[in-house]
C-alpha cells in the first residue's frame, strides 16, 4: 500500500498537434487569483516586482512571472518558478484578495506558425495580430469551457484552463492544430 498519494499532473505526457501548431502540456506553475482596488495597485506591484497592468488585455512579465489583466480589479498571476505568490502579495501591506489557484488551473502551450488558427478553431476571440499582439491576454471561451489565453510570443500561446476540463481543452486544441496544418 502506498504511504503517500502521488502527485499526478493533469496532462502528464500529453503531446499532440501538428508541425503547424504543436500542442503540449505546460510545466507546473503557481498561480494566484488577485483582486484589488486601484489604490492598492502600486503597493502590490512593488511587492511583486512587476507592474500590474491596468489596461484591458495587457500583461506584464519578468523572470518567469506573469501578471495578466482579467478585469478592472482582477489579475491572474503565474509564476513558472513556483514562488508562493500569496505570501509575496501579502508583503504589500495593502488590502487585496488573493486566492491560490495553482492546482485549479493547468496550462496548454500551443506553438507554431499556425498556433492562432489552432486556438481559433474553437474560440470566437479575435486572435489576429493587431487585436491580440504579443503580451496580450484575455479570458474567453474555448468550445464549451472558459479559458484564459496569453500570447507569450510571436508563435506561442498559453491556454490556461481548469484542471478537470484540461483533457477536453487538449483534445479541442490538438484537433484544431491538425486542421490548421491543411
Amino acid at each position: 500500500m502506498a504511504e503517500q498519494a502521488l502527485r499526478k499532473a493533469p496532462l502528464g505526457g500529453f503531446n499532440g498537434g501538428s508541425a503547424a501548431a504543436h500542442v503540449s502540456a505546460a510545466a507546473p506553475a503557481t498561480r494566484l487569483s488577485l483582486r484589488a482596488a486601484p489604490d492598492a495597485v502600486a503597493a502590490l506591484s512593488k511587492a511583486l516586482g512587476l507592474d500590474l497592468p491596468t489596461r484591458p488585455k495587457t500583461s506584464a512579465s519578468a523572470k518567469g512571472q506573469h501578471a495578466l489583466w482579467l478585469g478592472p480589479d482582477e489579475w491572474l498571476l503565474i509564476d513558472e518558478q513556483g514562488a508562493d505568490l500569496a505570501a509575496v502579495a501579502a508583503k504589500s501591506g495593502v488590502l487585496h484578495s488573493a486566492v491560490d489557484v495553482s492546482h485549479r488551473n493547468t496550462a496548454i502551450l500551443v506553438a507554431g506558425p499556425k498556433a492562432a488558427q489552432a486556438i481559433a478553431s474553437a474560440s470566437p476571440h479575435d486572435l489576429s495580430a493587431s487585436a491580440f499582439p504579443v503580451g496580450a491576454c484575455a479570458r474567453t471561451v474555448l468550445g464549451k469551457i472558459e479559458v484564459v489565453i496569453y500570447r507569450a510570443g510571436e508563435q506561442e500561446y498559453r491556454v490556461e484552463c481548469w484542471r478537470s476540463f484540461s483533457p477536453y481543452a487538449f483534445g479541442v486544441l490538438a484537433e484544431g492544430a491538425e486542421d490548421a496544418a491543411h
Binding site: P56, K57, P124, H125, D126, A131, T140, V141
Partner: peptide, 18 residues
C-alpha cells in the same frame, strides 16, 4: 455572431462571452 462592446474591456467581443 453578434459583437458586443464591453465598456470595461473597451472593445467589441463575441457574444458567447456575455
Amino acid at each position: 455572431m453578434l459583437l458586443i462592446h464591453c465598456p470595461y474591456c473597451e472593445e467589441e467581443r463575441p457574444e458567447l462571452e456575455f
